[in-house]
Design a protein around this nucleic acid. Structure first.
Lengths: 260, 260
DNA sequence: CCTCCTAAAAGATCATGATGATTATGAATT
DNA sequence: AATTCATAATCATCATGATCTTTTAGGAGG
């Protein structure tokens, strides 16, 4: 069993802010400063209320946080930008509970995560599980401009090979995949997939040849992969596209990513 | 082609803050207030520097944002909590560029997304693409306590059927899936998957029988699904677990989630 | 050379007061 | 009944000054 930052019982609406005072010495991460501490209290109060409930005026809430006006305003800005509260002026105004959208909630949770030694392997595994969706969306939604973009990237990658510029080649490799992912209208998929690519790109400093393959052959195979993909997209050939995507997955197939 | 909040050219490190003044009338979303406006400038300055470069003192940077001390401090707290900058005291201290971790970057991006009419279908599709990974991790990493937890949930779901409490049954359904997902040590997968479940749960108000199936049969099938899953986990039967997971996917199979 | 102390740099937080903008409500007017 | 206006509530931002904490660097002394 692996524990998250706060153990395995992380509630979906919890975030990195805890209601501990920042001066408290603790083995687990807590708020780095008074404003974060207060923001956590605000978030807790909002979470305990119904969406759009009035929580009180600034001064009333500030008393509950025991911080100064300036620090409270800092905290409020943080809580507001995390989607926990909204503010209104005028009579009946003040601070109101809000319910973060699922996206914002997911974002808040990612803000609380720390990379660890398995992040790259985890990202690769997820990327491999999602690439079929990306390709399917590319098939349905790509324009001729998208295909052209991919083809231009291929030209760039070929030039990189000719110039013995491995770095430019690798960049082209990831950029090509990004072009595909950006076609998807599924904003969750797009966002996650592009982030996974980004994690992988940061850790890919060389091209891994397949067993029994020379480096030149690996380069050529990669180019061929994207050529075939562009062709499949241009002709809306779903089976070819999926086949190409799966045949050219790098790294381990969906399987255990870490020792038991 | 679908556009994100800022069009289809959203750079990975861009977030919802734009450098437009909040007083500017615009058809696209911009910062809601001066502090966000300033936070966007700070983020841009940090992004243009190398990680750990000193960007300047508070006052020096504040001049570039043209805001008051208090507003600048609000902005700084937001930029800091988004991972764009860090602050140090003492001689040589000040504001330093930081590079957000991939998690934080992903979180920032999700903060900028808005739910749309396809969110549920998108979530379902991604869930279906990822459930095999979840099950595989559950096979590898679940403890007997995890299996017991799942079995206790099954008992609860059975009681809900007996009491004709559809809501409790559905809650148990999602809770069971959550138990599975929480086993995974892959924090990205876990976080995304649980969020997807949350989106789906909010929109599931009834159990959909399969074609030719009565509602009672649908309930029974769902229970059987989790019984089989618990058994497969307890006996580490990978093939059975995968088969059970795939056989009981609800909703459309991975396929176009929206009209072309 | 090492240790300790001091001064200065810079941030963290606090306190107070002010102006301007937004908004809801009630009263007056048409 | 509908519209307009005035008032008050509340936030958004600004300005200024103060104390405390943290950190670095240089100098003095052993």
């Amino acid at each position: 069993m692996t524990e998250g930052p706060y153990g395995n019982d992380v509630a979906l609406d919890r975030d990195a802010w805890g209601a501990r005072s920042p001066s408290q010495d603790s083995l687990t991460p807590g708020p780095a400063n008074r404003a974060e501490f207060a923001a956590g209290i605000i978030a807790d109060i909002a979470a305990a209320a119904q969406p759009d409930d009035r929580l009180g005026s600034k001064d009333e809430l500030r008393e509950q946080c025991s911080v100064s006006v300036g620090t409270f305003n800092e905290a409020l800005k943080m809580a507001e930008s995390r989607g926990f509260v909204t503010l209104r002026r005028g009579p009946g105004g003040g601070i109101f509970a809000a319910q973060p959208t699922p996206m914002v909630r997911l974002g808040n949770q990612f803000l609380a995560l720390k990379p660890d030694k398995n992040t790259v392997a985890d990202a690769l595994r997820m990327r491999n599980a999602l690439d079929q969706l990306v390709v399917e969306d590319a098939l349905l939604y790509s324009s001729s401009a998208d295909v052209s973009r991919l083809r231009e990237e291929i030209v760039r990658m070929r030039a990189a090979i000719a110039a013995n510029d491995v770095r430019a080649f690798l960049h082209g490799n990831w950029a090509s995949q990004s072009h595909l992912a950006r076609v998807s209208p599924n904003q969750i998929l797009r966002t996650v997939y592009l982030a996974l690519l980004n994690i992988l790109e940061e850790h890919a400093t060389e091209l891994q040849p397949m067993p029994g393959q020379t480096l030149d052959e690996a380069f050529a195979a990669r180019i061929e992969h994207y050529v075939q993909m562009a062709d499949a997209l241009a002709s809306r050939d779903r089976e070819a596209a999926i086949r190409v995507a799966i045949a050219h997955r790098t790294g381990p197939q969906p399987s255990p990513a870490r020792p038991a």
